[in-house]
């Protein structure tokens, strides 16, 4: 088998005394879509944020395309351009127009000329369907549009993989669909994706694999129609019942 896109090896993370990740190991192949589900506080976000080292693991390794990025000698900024990240709260830059949100890192990090950066930005905005908002400020966009802009902003860097942390949780229900559609089309185009989500429908349809986390460990993982339909563990069954009741 080829080198996995993402490989996490025996990851531990403490916040002070609190052990949030208690030895997590998993890997994601190129082009694979993996959804991470589990109850609140189980460490899903922390795990995701360790993948691009927004959170520094206490011990363990994170290998991106075979390169251990916890090694201090690795150029982390360079590495991060290869890993897109989408946040629950969008985190667009409110003082910049949508277009500028998409070009600033291209210019500063990839050293692309303004003209080229704008062409790429417009292409990506087109792709997520918000090109008409290019010259607006983020505050003038709906939540769904803002999240799609945030996805486009990541895509501008030409990432090989994307991390999503509950990308639809801050959205009004009627705006969830448009963001999930964009993510679906990314998956179809072969993007490697690691998605923390509570959208079980999305996980069932799109994920190649589902990882169920609880209490800082991976309790169960496998194809969606096993983990989400016929879970082996009692903990996963209880979680799914709870989600369905909502």
């Amino acid at each position: 088998m080829s080198t996995p896109a993402i490989q996490i090896v025996d990851l531990h993370k403490y916040f002070g005394e609190l052990e949030v990740l208690k030895g997590v190991s998993m890997s994601i192949e190129r082009g694979e879509v993996v959804c991470v589900v589990g109850p609140s506080g189980s460490g899903k976000s922390t795990l995701l944020r360790c993948v691009n080292l927004l959170e520094l693991p206490t011990s363990g390794q994170v290998l991106i395309d075979g390169i251990d990025i916890t090694d201090p000698k690795v150029d982390l900024d360079q590495m991060r351009t290869r890993i897109g990240m989408v946040f629950q709260q969008f985190n667009l830059f409110p003082h910049l127009t949508v277009l500028r949100n998409l070009t600033i890192a291209q210019e500063k990090v990839l050293k692309r000329p303004r003209q080229e950066a704008e062409t790429i930005a417009m292409e990506m905005l087109e792709r997520v369907g918000v090109a008409n908002k290019a010259h607006e400020y983020p505050a003038r966009c709906s939540g769904g549009q803002q999240q799609r802009v945030a996805i486009a902003r990541s895509l501008c860097m030409g990432p090989e993989m994307m991390l999503f942390d509950e990308p639809t949780s801050a959205l009004d229900p009627e705006l969830v669909g448009e963001v999930l559609d964009v993510m679906r089309s990314l998956a179809r185009d072969g993007m490697t994706m690691m998605v923390v989500t509570h959208e079980m429908g999305f996980a069932r349809d799109v994920a190649d694999r589902v990882v169920f986390m609880d209490g800082g460990v991976i309790v169960e993982e496998g194809p969606p129609n096993e983990v989400l339909v016929n879970p082996k563990t009692e903990r996963a069954r209880r979680f799914l019942r709870m989600v369905e009741e909502k």
Partner: peptide, 22 residues
Amino acid sequence: PRGQMEAARSLGMSRGQTMASI
């Protein structure tokens, strides 16, 4: 908000670049 620093860093911008332009 802290998310501003995180968003910029995850795009590959350095701490200094993020401070200066975000």
